[in-house]
Design a protein around this nucleic acid. Sequence first.
DNA 1: GAAAGTATGTGAAGTGTAGCACTAAGTTTG
DNA 2: CAAACTTAGTGCTACACTTCACATACTTTC
Lengths: 217, 217
Amino acid sequence: MEEPPDVVIRRLPLYARSLRYLLQEGVESVSSQELGDRINVTAAQIRKDLSYFGEFGKQGIGYNVRKLLQQIEDILGLTREWPVAVIGIGHLGEAIARYEGFRQQGIRIAGLFDSNPSKIGKVIDGMTVQSIEEADRIIREQGIRLAIIAVPARSAQEVTDRLVMAGVRAILSYAPTVLQVPEGVWVRYIDPVAILHSMTYYLARDIHSTRHNSPES
Amino acid sequence: MEEPPDVVIRRLPLYARSLRYLLQEGVESVSSQELGDRINVTAAQIRKDLSYFGEFGKQGIGYNVRKLLQQIEDILGLTREWPVAVIGIGHLGEAIARYEGFRQQGIRIAGLFDSNPSKIGKVIDGMTVQSIEEADRIIREQGIRLAIIAVPARSAQEVTDRLVMAGVRAILSYAPTVLQVPEGVWVRYIDPVAILHSMTYYLARDIHSTRHNSPES
DNA sequence: GAAAGTATGTGAAGTGTAGCACTAAGTTTG
DNA sequence: CAAACTTAGTGCTACACTTCACATACTTTC
């Protein structure tokens, strides 16, 4: 079996989420077509994606929602719980710490860290903000491999180096800068400003012309 | 000249940002190689991308930082200011409203909206949270075409329909659900949970095997 | 229980993007 | 001022991903 491409891995969580919604709605069976319509992905794409991991459907029927969800969660490693460190407890870091969506499905906020002494000791949702100095030890002790960075761009690289040194292997960064990491460490970015700036291109163009080409991310 | 693909449009803001940093550092000239090294993009990619819009460099020299930045900002429509409506003022919406990064470079938060009466009237950074009922009028009056959605998944589609009806043409959604929009409306998503869930795949795999394929988003 | 209907899994074709490698044009060196 | 060096712009190639379309398999209908 071939190695699944990263684009496929990125779509799996969307399939999983959609299946969770279906489950809540009490739907027990779904076809690749129905699932695809919900998330604007073609049926063939879904079937191809899943085929990297096995055969999960029944011809003539479709997929059992609960079973497929379990299998995708298993593939993604969501059957266990992943402790996550959050670095940088400004407005954004605090919102992340409080976000219910993280609590579920395999993610557990395991530590909040900041370098600003005025933030340290602050309690957010039952968790105490700790000094960044403590991060190394706690990451090592708890075997934390996932971190979310919400610090200013200027300190993001320094924080990253530190985290990687302590054992973090996957980073979700909200800092508006590209991080350099050694082989074997995964970085993904959340960059709302860049997204907005890319959309203004189309808005500006649409104002000047009437030409349209297909939107939708 | 050919229509630039969307992937290229999405990279332009990254180039722009990197050029802004270079400008702050006092660098006046940069080669595609140097710029690429900073943001982990090949030199050829940068040159190819820019070639969709014209010729901005000097052979043997590279690019004038200030000039290239201006030209990219011009392409992206960032020479004017885009008013943005923010819908959903929970922890995240508030963090968005307070984020300094939005204030700069063409984006101006023009209105904060929520459906929860207990939120309405709240003042955030000098802006008063208004009822979602007011959004239609204000979007029309101010010609707002860009919106950020930070509402729960269950109300995201309803809010979207409303915004589109009022004239919004580009939406950045933080809601964990796929939105259906008519032709001519752009939607992009920020989905930290999906990103984390895609990274756990690699973390889980690395624990079970020693095989590595290249990380980095 | 045969025929019609539905939907998966997948080889093959099609599409789009990234990178190579070369030409052209400028600069620096001696 | 010529030779060596640097770097942009770009046609072409290679590759990766998406979509098509069909064989297969299961279900429902009559």
